[in-house]
């Protein structure tokens, strides 16, 4: 960059209007460039001259105090005409204090929500393991908090669009082109193969809540010993339950 391109930046630097990286950049340039340093010094001198010259003029105290008396008298007259001017905000607190309270409330609510979500993420998998909570039927849905079955590795039908389940952070992961997916089962739910290690499959056998899982779901657990059929999957309507 040529020195003439630095002129406005030098000016802003001399007036303290630069910060962060641009300031460091100018500082380093000034160390190695005499011409720019002279320009910068000139701007500083002019700034100080203007600041000095445009201060309230000395020697005007008498006039100023007369003017202040005049203003004070006018304010008192106004206060007498409208004694209720205190015009305070309805609850008596100034706006800045009320605004501060409002911000505190919002921050508190956000923190509480965060704490709740974190707790849920810790507790929820344990409850599911213990069978207290039903497993999610949205098998293709995963979330950072463990909502959605993933332990079977089952994948929903291609193009399946499932809204997020009860958990608020659910994300759909199984949307995509059919060609990108492995073929999955085509038979009814009762015919889907099961393993003997996975709790999800165990509940399927027991007729638990996951019996409603769409027929295309299959277990890819190594212990199941099943292989996926070669046939292309059929679109299966999915009810989201909502």
């Amino acid at each position: 960059m040529k020195c003439r391109h630095w002129q406005q930046t030098l000016f802003l630097h001399a007036h303290g209007q630069l910060g962060g990286f641009p300031r460091l950049l100018v500082d380093s340039h000034l160390q190695g460039c005499d011409n720019c340093r002279a320009q910068w010094a000139r701007w500083v001198v002019e700034r100080e001259r203007l600041q000095r010259a445009l201060q309230p003029a000395p020697g005007s105290d008498r006039e100023a105090s007369a003017s202040i008396q005049q203003v004070a008298a006018a304010i008192r007259a106004e206060a007498m005409v409208n004694p209720a001017s205190p015009k305070v905000s309805p609850r008596g607190a100034p706006d800045s204090a009320r605004g501060r309270q409002r911000v505190t409330l919002i921050l508190g609510a956000a923190l509480a929500a965060l704490a709740f979500a974190a707790t849920a993420s810790v507790v929820e998998p344990g409850l599911r393991q213990a069978g207290i909570l039903p497993r999610s039927k949205f098998s293709g849905v995963s979330s950072p908090f463990g909502i959605g079955g993933k332990d079977c590795g089952d994948v929903g039908p291609p193009g399946l669009t499932v809204p997020a389940p009860a958990g608020m952070f659910g994300t759909v992961t199984n949307i995509g082109r059919a060609g990108n997916r492995k073929p999955t089962g085509t038979g009814p739910a009762a015919a889907a193969p099961v393993c003997d290690q996975c709790p999800n499959c165990a509940r399927k056998q027991a007729g638990g809540p996951t019996a409603a899982v769409p027929a295309v779901m299959e277990c890819k657990h190594p212990g199941s010993g099943t292989t996926a059929p070669a046939a292309a999957p059929q679109a299966v309507p999915v009810t989201t339950g909502n």
Binding site: V71, E78, S85
Partner: peptide, 16 residues
Amino acid sequence: QDVFVSAWKELPGFRG
């Protein structure tokens, strides 16, 4: 004077 009287009157509208 007008500036300061206006400021006094408008002070409730000053939101900080």
